[in-house]
């Protein structure tokens, strides 16, 4: 019974995070929403693994947690590059 409650709660949170990712309006909202969705997916996988009676599938949640971190760093790097470039363009404009 507790599984049902937890799964529904996580799904609702995911829907809300997705709404934020869709509406934006700034990119930071989207980044945060994607990061949050990743975290919720890890939780959901962990709960679902027990719910469907395959706790050994927790490996998947572990993969997610690791991969999600790399994704967030890639986003940070992407913004660093973009900031550098707009700085360089400003200098050229002067």
């Amino acid at each position: 019974m507790i599984y049902y409650a937890v799964i529904v709660a996580i799904l609702v949170t995911m829907a809300l995070a997705l709404a934020r990712a869709l509406i934006g309006p700034t990119v930071y909202d989207r980044v945060l929403a994607v990061n949050m969705l990743g975290t919720k997916t890890v939780l959901l996988l962990a709960v679902a693994a027990f719910f469907i009676g395959r706790p050994d599938f927790l490996d998947l949640a572990l993969t997610y947690a690791l991969i999600n971190f790399i994704g967030v760093l890639a986003v940070l790097e992407f913004f660093r590059v973009r900031a550098q470039r707009s700085l360089a363009e400003e200098k050229e404009g002067e």
Binding site: L18, A21, V27, R30, A33, V34, F78
Partner: peptide, 11 residues
């Protein structure tokens, strides 16, 4: 916005 599209495809 291509960045938004990349993030959404991750989701």
């Amino acid at each position: 916005n291509l960045f938004a599209a990349a993030m959404l495809s991750g989701i």
